[in-house]
Design a binder for these strands. Structure first.
Length: 745
RNA sequence: GCCGCUGUAGCUCAGUGGUAGAGCGCACCCUUGGUAAGGGUGAGGUCAUGGGUUCAAAUCCCAUCAGCGGCUCCA
């Protein structure tokens, strides 16, 4: 006798078990027609299910519908369609390539779905097959075959899967049943069995497995699957295969290598086309492509992977951005410092960076004399490593005493004369800044001390991770460390957030969100007292809430030394980019034995806030290149205006125009090549120069320039030279709030 | 780091075992023009690097390096 509560609060009672389809039909035929699935909540959260699955208990029920025309699909609807589309794509692939392609795992994702599969040895699968596969996908959708669910007892289903010879499906089935895997022997083999009470889990799991046939069981294509699916293939709308990649079974690099086939599905072909158009648009904005075309930066094999050479044009963008940020920092009471790119190994042993994170650092720079001495003594490499990574008894005593926690393995504590000294390229700026703080006594009256540095750091990113400007091995953080009292934490976090807000606004990045990384309540890995954490987390959450943008709490995402706030911005075409963070750190004070004198005339530990709200200049510039598609606002543009004489008869006047622009400090050039003006415009347009000032005899006579603005494909009209120069300077100085082009609007 | 694909002129790319190619860019010449490419001539290449197969390798094979797409990672 289920009583069903609908999203609007209405209830409906039935005298026998019903399906969501029945419920939808009882409400209206329109709803029943539009329904593609349901979300039922029996008291433990909403759960997507098939339209036809039986409901025998009271629940809250939401009917998931396909979107009406001109309406966006809900996330739940897309989930159902894409999960279903993954089956259709898999069937299409098996039709094209053969049944010996073994299917492994095919979930929906944020933008589509993928299916991991094993392609048998000797079989080729390439993008050449895509047309055939897409044709099959379209045909299957058109056939409108029902997704038919049936269950089979585990005792029958498991042997059946085994006999089909697909170990990946056997593994899926075993995991679904809560059994330890008989075929996969990796680190992530049996996550369920590792929980505290495996036996109760066994009982709670249904002893049967579900399959979905795309059509009639036994007749049409079918797949082991938990579901749910849309009622029939036509309800998927439009789907297609997109790309191929490789993956590992269970993400375990020692396990089988699988082929991951990406695809996507949308309710209508128009939406799918729009998605493809956006992908194309995104590809055109690729900062690596634009960076090359506009000569913004260069990566040279001889210099090294992931090391950016900023060419003159790109240096302008980076420098302007940095100047802008630095001016905002000064307004907020930051003081600027400079520190070197390397520091002694002991410094990083104190900070804890070395050797714990040695895999993500450049190897140490060892002093020549020490190396020679070791070579003379025929020292082995492993011995050398031990001596580089070792810690002196003095340092060990200090670290243990200060933190009261860290245990240094006894075999790492070596007598001084065995240790090899050396330097490290700095992976972070904080140790240097801590030493600056510690170099002078501090009173609570001086606090907070805000040390800012565009500090360049070096990290050994895995080679496969490197990517243009967004993932590099040497980068300059917009770094600062705020040494403050606990009471000052909220205001300082607030300050960081307001800085971010100011700068994002000027750059037109209106949409962004923050993630607040909090403790994992079940873990004991964190340093600092519970009270401190409570306060710091509250401060982060409060600051995030006050920002007036979307924020999420992410338990377990805190660093071990304190909570953090991450910034995620959306660019103009809606892609999200993770930029910088603000992190509260209780660890650094004790480690570097930092103190300030409080009102009680006693020393106190400062808390340190690390903040690099834009991450790194490299990454941020990369994001901006894509955000603006290389068409930077005037103040950031490498070349702000170009003077185009229509023939060399006007070159002298053009030079005078250029002089007037230079007097205003504008970055401008003139094109005195013997091209025609049409060609000069084409060249300048390709370089995305904001303004072109065309000058000919007419202009010379009137003392004017003819103005053409980027993106507006016509002559806007003439303006007196001094007026035009002043307007350009004003557009720069207001960072676009006033603009020359707007005068002609 | 792992897997796959790719590497030819400054850039974008063609060239599948037999003399190294195109467009753009660059240099020079002609053209002197009013808003998205006027015309001509020319320079420019260790075909990523190292080995191998072959009478003969840009082309086939192996290794290395780098780029791309993923996977894994990111204090």
């Amino acid at each position: 006798m289920p009583t069903i509560t609908l999203p609007n609060g209405d209830t409906k009672s039935f005298d026998k078990p019903v399906s969501a389809r029945d419920v939808a039909a009882s409400i209206g035929t329109g709803l029943a027609k539009a329904a593609i699935g349901a979300k039922a909540d029996f008291g433990s959260g909403g759960e997507l299910r098939d339209l036809g699955s039986p409901i025998d208990r009271d629940c809250r029920l939401e009917i998931i519908t396909a979107p009406r025309p001109n309406q966006k699909a809900t996330a739940d609807a897309l989930y159902l369609m894409r999960h279903s589309a993954a089956h259709v794509m898999a069937e299409a692939i098996q039709d094209v390539l053969g049944k010996d392609v073994l299917l492994a795992y095919g979930p929906p994702t944020d933008t589509g779905f993928f299916y991991d599969m094993f392609i048998p040895e000797g079989k080729r699968f390439s993008t050449d097959h895509f047309d055939a596969i897409n044709a099959r996908i379209a045909a299957i959708i058109k056939e409108d075959r029902p997704f038919t669910r049936y269950e089979q007892p585990a005792g029958e289903a498991l042997p059946r899967l085994n006999s089909e010879g697909n170990k990946y499906k056997v593994d899926n089935a075993e995991r679904a049943l809560g059994l330890p895997s008989s075929v996969y022997k990796g680190p992530k083999a049996a996550p369920v069995a590792s929980t505290s009470d495996a036996s109760s889990l066994r009982h709670s799991v249904t002893p049967s497995l579900s399959f979905y046939a795309t059509g009639q069981p036994g007749k049409n294509w079918e797949d082991l699957c938990r579901g749910p699916h849309v009622p029939s293939t036509a309800r998927i709308g439009a789907a297609q295969v997109l790309s191929l990649a490789s993956s590992f079974w269970h993400g375990d690099e020692n396990a089988d290598r699988l082929t991951r086939v990406y695809g996507t599905a949308f309710p209508t072909q128009a939406e799918l086309d729009e998605f493809l158009r956006q992908k194309e648009e995104a590809a055109k904005r690729d900062h690596r492509v634009i960076g090359k075309a506009l000569r913004l930066f260069h990566i040279d094999e001889d210099v090294g992977q992931g090391l950016i050479l900023w060419t003159p044009a790109g240096s302008v963008v980076r420098k302007e951005l940095q100047t802008f940020i630095a001016a905002e920092l000064r307004k907020q009471g930051y003081t600027e410092v400079f520190t070197p790119h390397i520091g002694r190994l002991d410094l990083y042993k104190t900070s804890g960076h070395f050797p714990y994170y040695k895999d993500s650092q450049f190897p140490p720079i060892v002093e020549r004399d020490a190396l020679n001495a070791l070579a003379d003594a025929a020292c082995s490499c492993s011995e050398m490593l031990r001596r580089v990574e070792g810690v002196s008894p003095r340092l060990a005593a200090g670290i243990n005493q200060r933190t009261g926690r860290e245990t240094i393995a006894p075999d790492r504590v070596l007598p001084d004369d065995q240790l090899i000294d050396g330097f490290m390229l700095k992976p972070m700026n904080c140790p240097h800044h801590a030493k600056i703080f510690a170099s002078a006594p501090h009173s609570y009256r001086d606090m907070p001390v805000r040390l800012a540095e565009f500090g360049t750091v070096y990290r050994w990113e895995q080679s496969g991770e490197l990517n243009g400007l967004t993932r590099v091995r040497g980068f300059t953080q917009d770094d600062a460390h705020l040494f403050c009292t606990e009471d000052q934490i909220p205001a300082e976090i607030q300050g960081c957030l307001s800085l971010v807000k100011t700068i994002f606004n000027v750059l037109g990045m209106k949409e962004y969100r923050v993630r607040v990384g909090l403790r994992d309540p079940d873990s004991g890995k964190y340093t600092g007292s519970k009270e401190s954490w409570d306060k710091a987390e509250a401060a982060c959450l409060e600051a995030a809430a006050s920002l007036g943008v979307e924020f999420s709490r992410e338990p377990g995402e805190a660093a071990f030394y304190g909570p953090k706030i991450d910034f995620v911005v959306k660019d103009v075409i809606g892609r999200e980019w993770q930029l910088g963070t603000v992190q509260v750190d209780y660890q650094m004070g004790p480690r570097f034995d930092l103190s300030y004198i409080g009102p009680d005339n006693k020393p106190h530990r400062p808390v340190v806030i690390h903040r690099a709200p834009f991450g790194s200049m490299e990454r941020f510039c990369g994001v901006l290149i894509e955000h603006f598609a290389g068409a930077f606002p005037l103040w950031l543009s490498p070349e702000q205006a170009r003077v185009l004489p229509i023939s060399d008869k006007s070159n002298d006047y053009a030079a005078r125009v250029l002089g007037a622009l230079a007097e205003r400090g504008l970055r401008a050039t003139m094109d005195d090549s013997n091209d025609r003006v049409q060609a000069k415009i084409k060249v300048a347009a390709d370089l995305k120069i904001p303004y072109l000032l065309v000058v000919g005899p007419r202009d010379e006579e009137n003392g004017t320039v003819s103005i053409r603005a980027r993106g507006i494909q016509k002559d806007l009209g003439a303006l007196a030279l001094p007026e035009a120069a002043a307007a350009l300077a004003a557009e720069r100085d207001t960072r676009g709030e006033t603009s020359l082009a707007a005068r002609f609007a």
